[in-house]
Design a protein around this nucleic acid. Structure first.
Lengths: 214, 214
DNA sequence: TGAGAAGCGGAGAAGGTAGTCCACTTTAGG
DNA sequence: CCTAAAGTGGACTACCTTCTCCGCTTCTCA
């Protein structure tokens, strides 16, 4: 449906099956290790040769867009839902929460949203679907007077990018800093939050560094 | 003086000269490209063979500690000076400013401070010199009641680590988000800051992504 | 059922980095 | 000045990743 390949040439049945195996393998590997996993690894996990992976997805974009376009679209829908909420602040907060949670569970997805420029125009376009939703939510928050006027949409993107580096499957640490930064951008109309999660320990810090190391 | 090599074996004069060439080359390359530059590149820039670089600095730590120990010590001194300031808030703020500025101008230095765990115990020890100063500054800020009680030293380390990803030689963007964070961690005793620097543009965002890409 | 097209995968070339080896050069010091 | 020790650097091995080539297999459809 989102896949133009099928329109051009109906794949032979075995080839179609292999394609699905590749997509599934890439989904797992991207989630675990990010978008830069070697094609060899993808082929091995899928049980096909490298050449087959290259034949089906000559550019890494092809694979990335195939895998993540739907997920970004889902998030965009969450953005639309957030716009339906009565409270502008809650809506914005909820959208950020959704976007961050999605990234927290999938390293590849986090890279799609924060470093799309590295993977070509098509990936940028894909990730860009979220932009208008965020812009609308920020605009509405401004009109409600709940965020300081000098903070814009791009600032939110930056702040979320920063938060990503605090994401780790075992801790909710990123929520703690999300709370700090939300406290930093509100007006006095919004009461301060209590900080979620405990202060990080030495071990937390180490884990994070190792996780984000190449 | 900080260099134990000279105590063990006085290097032959030509070897000592080469050693300095290597250190100088590594200083430049680390600053430009981070701590992971190939040894081949260091040798080439220094005008010596790779083998010479390996002979003098068999472990990358050796090179890193040689280069950065003094710089960390200097920063630690800035921390002591910050503790001398009358105002607890100004002192803490000034120290963070100093640490961030040092990292902004040198990618390698930023890695030493934020990812020391990747480069071995000796680098960790080196970077750890800053910890007690930060702890003292934070403690004093708590006593003065200028930062919220649930924020600790480790939080500052995390916040600075996040800010690093916003550092770019051409923009003062990181100061903008430093201001947001500081607004998020103060008590009401401290008045809000006006945000420095403009909102980031699309181009700023791209530049940052490309800068931090491997 | 048997071409012919479509698909397959291992091998291998190309390009990059870590780290070592050893024949050669330079220095120190008697 | 001459020699022994110290130092040198390029070539080399090992390893990893990307991407292609081509002989072989599998499917499709008449």
């Amino acid at each position: 449906m989102t896949d133009s390949t099928e329109l051009h040439q109906p794949l032979r049945r075995d080839a179609a099956r292999n394609r699905e195996l590749i997509v599934a393998a890439a989904r797992d590997l991207f989630a675990e290790s990010g978008l830069d996993v070697p094609y060899d690894d993808i082929g091995r996990r899928a049980g096909v040769g490298v050449a087959t992976v290259y034949r089906r997805f000559p550019q890494r974009d092809d694979l990335i867009v195939t895998l993540f376009d739907q997920r970004v679209a889902d998030l965009a829908k969450r953005g639309d839902e957030a716009l339906e909420m009565e409270d502008a602040w809650t809506g914005l907060r909820s959208f950020v929460e959704k976007v961050m949670t999605a990234q927290a569970g999938d390293r590849g997805f986090a890279q799609v949203l924060t470093r799309s420029a590295l993977y070509g125009r098509r990936v940028e376009t894909c990730a860009g679907q979220l932009h208008p939703r965020l812009a609308a939510l920020v605009e509405r928050a401004h009109q409600a007077g709940v965020i300081r006027p000098d903070i814009g949409t791009a600032d939110f993107e930056m702040l979320m990018t920063m938060l990503i580096s605090m994401v780790h499957p075992n801790t909710g640490l990123w929520r703690r800093y999300a709370a700090v930064f939300f406290d930093g951008i509100t007006t006095d109309l919004v009461p301060r939050e209590r900080l979620p999660a405990d202060q990080p320990t030495e071990a937390d810090l180490r884990q994070l560094v190792l996780r984000w190391a190449h």
